[in-house]
Design a protein around this nucleic acid. Structure first.
Lengths: 208, 208
DNA sequence: CATCTCAGTGTACATACGTAAACTCACTCC
DNA sequence: GGAGTGAGTTTACGTATGTACACTGAGATG
């Protein structure tokens, strides 16, 4: 590869990381172009060689989130063979919390900017989350078949699960490791609740 | 009441509303003292007669959210007599969506600043949400008794429900009214899923 | 090798920021 | 009714912001 464009790519990454780093403490909306440039160790005006403005940088961050989420999904699937649903749930959530810890800044951005940010920004994030929900929904269906069970509207179940896991999981970010254990249990419990509720019981005990 | 402090209270409210208004588009963290003062139609330096800095204003906004949430809960309860659980769920969620629409800015702040903001800010919001969860949890218990049912860990159920309702409900903010109907159905469906999963079935079908 | 390209720099400017200080003047209070 | 109070204003400051413009110099190109 070009030595020139290689160097450019490097600074671009420096900018992205700087923005990620800074946004985790004060929120992306509060970042200034200059402070990002400074953190990336370039002159303010060099910023424009990479992005038109802060909004465009923001969209690149969303891309970053997107590939990161896909990696997460891929990893979770790879290790999900030949397990029963309950230990699979537990395992997936551990994978997830691990991911959250490793990508704290990305994750903070993902959740923090769902509200508040610009329309473009918000829409881009929504799209990524929806995609994640769809994938999980398909996994749930696949799994139900494998286990000879029926789920009703796995779509709703998936959305509910993603909402819970993402939102409660975000709290892990501010917690010391030893407290994260309790959090995991809470999440597992709640996800199981949803799965139980989604399961089509062979004969439901109706009161009347 | 004092004519003087009456006037002061009025400007204070103007400041709070201005901040609320502005924060809904760009996020609270991105607000400057000067623009809030300008929106409230006072000189920038008069801001200090009311708050030490923007952080203190923020905490007042959280207070505003707190009383607003309590009002919501009170209203929902007042109209919840003599209903079965499923229509009660539906009704509560309609009340909630109505509330969200009427307090759009407060609500955006509540959700948007859960991440991102300062520690004090975040902690204050967390406290309010937790309180809400506790109240809902008690309501669930009370209801279960009334209907002669058993719930397991209503606490988890309440947390899951609040998370779902708040997060998905927040999407209503960006939706035209005619699309909000579909959203309500989604929420109702997911909440019912959780409630079904939380219900202690008289005899659980265990595999082994 | 001469020339071109372009990521990054340095300087400059208008504008917005937070806040200190000294002020005004409608009000409260004795 | 005269003194004191305090919400709000005006002026002023040092600092940070976004961005235009002219530049440099290492690396690509023919």
């Amino acid at each position: 590869m070009d030595k020139r464009s290689e160097q450019k790519a490097k600074t671009r990454i420096k900018l992205i990381n700087a923005a990620l780093e800074l946004s985790s403490t004060k929120g992306f909306a509060a970042l200034s172009l200059r402070e990002v440039a400074q953190a990336a160790e370039i002159a303010p005006t060099a910023f424009y060689r990479h992005f038109r403005d802060m909004e465009e940088l923001g969209l690149s961050l969303v891309d970053e989130i997107a590939v990161s989420l896909r990696r997460l999904l891929r990893n979770a699937r790879k290790n999900s063979e030949a397990k029963d649903l309950s230990s699979l749930t537990r395992f997936s959530i551990e994978t997830f919390i691990e991911y959250v810890n490793e990508n704290a800044n990305l994750f903070r951005l993902l959740l923090g900017e769902r509200q508040g940010a610009s329309d473009t920004f918000r829409a881009a994030l929504r799209k990524e989350i929806d995609l994640f929900v769809v994938e999980l929904s398909e996994d749930l269906d696949r799994l139900a078949v494998m286990q000879n069970q029926k789920l009703r509207h796995s779509g709703y179940a998936a959305e509910a699960i993603v909402t819970i896991v993402f939102t409660i999981g975000a709290e892990a970010l501010d917690l010391p490791p030893f407290k994260q254990e309790a959090l995991k249990i809470r999440i597992v419990e709640e996800v199981n609740m949803i799965l139980r509720g989604a399961r089509e019981t062979s004969r439901v005990k109706t009161k009347r």
